[in-house]
Measured scan of single mutants.
Amino acid sequence: MQIFVKTATGKTITLEVEPSDTIENVKAKIQDKEGIPPDQQRLAFAGKQLEDGRTLSDYNIQKESTLHLALR
């Protein structure tokens, strides 16, 4: 499925993911596309910060959802 990640600079990244993917996997995909190390990424959805060990389906993130990326 496709999801979107909006960066602090307003850029939107499109990612191909599975509901079973962990947040860690998603951060690795962002690193592949943007070169941002996962340990510098903070992802949020619906106002909640997402934890590495959880999956997209844990957070009820569905196709075409938009996550927000902040850098630490």
Rank of each mutant, 00 (worst) to 15 (best):
A46K: 08
Q62S: 09
N25D: 09
Q2A: 14
S20E: 08
M1W: 12
K63I: 07
K27I: 02
I13F: 12
Q40Y: 09
E34I: 12
F4V: 05
E24L: 11
V5C: 03
D39A: 11
E18P: 04
Q41C: 04
D58I: 03
K63Q: 15
L69G: 02
D52S: 09
T9I: 09
L50H: 00
T55A: 06
K27W: 02
K27Q: 02
P37Q: 13
S57T: 14
G10F: 05
R54V: 13
E18A: 08
L43A: 01
A28N: 10
L71C: 05
Q62G: 09
D32R: 07
K6M: 15
I3M: 04
R72S: 11
I30P: 00
G47W: 05
K11A: 15
P37E: 12
H68Q: 13
Q2R: 08
A46S: 10
K63G: 14
A46V: 06
Y59S: 03
L43R: 00
P37M: 10
S65T: 08
A44L: 14
T12N: 10
T66W: 12
A44E: 11
T22I: 07
D32I: 12
T9E: 13
E18D: 13
K11C: 05
G47Y: 05
D21K: 02
R72C: 05
I36Q: 03
A28H: 08
S57R: 12
A46H: 15
Q62W: 11
K48N: 13
N60A: 13
I61D: 00
I23Y: 02
T14P: 12
I3V: 09
K33P: 02
K27A: 02
N25R: 09
L71P: 13
I13R: 02
L69V: 06
N60I: 04
E24I: 14
E18Y: 15
D39C: 06
Q2W: 12
E64P: 03
G47T: 05
K27D: 00
L43H: 01
T12H: 07
N25Y: 10
K48C: 04
I3R: 00
Q49N: 14
L69Q: 03
A70Q: 15
E34C: 04
I13W: 12
D58S: 11
N60T: 05
K29E: 04
D32F: 15
L50K: 00
L15N: 00
S65L: 03
Y59N: 03
G35C: 04
A70K: 08
L67Y: 01
I36A: 04
I3N: 00
T7E: 06
S65R: 03
K29V: 05
V5R: 00
K11L: 09
Q2I: 13
H68D: 10
L56W: 01
T14D: 12
G47Q: 06
E64I: 03
V5S: 01
A44S: 15
T22S: 08
A28Y: 13
E18I: 11
L67M: 04
Q62D: 14
G10K: 06
E16P: 05
T12V: 10
S20W: 10
G53N: 10
G47F: 05
Q62F: 12
M1Y: 14
K63T: 15
P38I: 09
D52H: 07
Q2E: 12
P19F: 08
P19M: 13
F4Q: 05
M1R: 03
K11H: 15
L15C: 03
Q41Y: 15
L15S: 00
T12S: 09
K6V: 10
P19R: 13
T12G: 04
L15F: 05
L67K: 01
A8F: 11
D21A: 10
G10W: 05
D32T: 09
R42E: 10
K6F: 10
V5E: 00
F45Q: 03
M1D: 02
I3K: 00
S57N: 07
G35T: 04
N25Q: 13
K29F: 11
S20A: 11
